[in-house]
Amino acid sequence: MLKIKNLHASVADKSILRGINLEIKPGEVHAIMGPNGSGKSTLASVIAGKEDYEVTDGEIFFEGEDINEFAPEERAHKGVFLSFQYPVEIPGVSVTNFMKTAINETRKAKGLEDMPAKDMLKLIREKAELLEIDRKFLSRSLNEGFSGGEKKRNEIFQMAMLEPKLAILDETDSGLDIDALRIVANGVNKLKNKDNAVLLITHYQRLLDYIVPDYVHVLYKGKIVKSGTKELAHELEAKGYDWIKEEVNI
């Protein structure tokens, strides 16, 4: 589904990603871990197509298509979803209205008519239930005055609505208390199936107790320096990142 080859990227001439290779197949859950500043969030942004980042070398294939020249919205239409670490506020635009716009824009891109209001309402109700979201929440302005937990839950709600092929969750666990973490993780698990994939980006192993990855990769200084299974995450939790750094430097 996603195939990244020798990806190099920089922002404002500062090189951040220095040769990433990664392949994610349908039905898989991958976790990317690593110390602060290793390039985790940059990787997420580059896959999503944020223009501030310049791809200086390498390729990103999504479903067999080189998406490097695609605008962020085109990638979204193809099924790439990014759950933001810091979701932005859009005052005056309700969660419902925002989702309606996002869904209908995606449908338009696929040559489909707007989703009938009745179906939209049904879908919203269904997904809100899945994520234990109060309906009142949906008429509030997007992320405005939301708590950290509400913002993250709202991200996963949007993911549920848009049903992406690849969901990238950037530090979704940060700022969540244990109850919120459980709800968010349950949501992700319920949405997971054999045709979609999840890329978790996290600093801590905590999230991985709830969403169990098939593969764990350690990102350090813009490169994947170690890959393994979920046991690697436990090892990192126990030993920290220093041993990886030492290994890499040898």
């Binding site: 197509g49 239409h77 932005v88 859009i90 824009e105 302005s141």
Partner: peptide, 25 residues
Amino acid sequence: QIFYCNQRGINTEKAIALIVNGFSK
């Protein structure tokens, strides 16, 4: 804000309209 909208499949023109309409609501 624009990138956030883009990422949800909303192009820049439409994103601006959405943000402006929200602002003017």
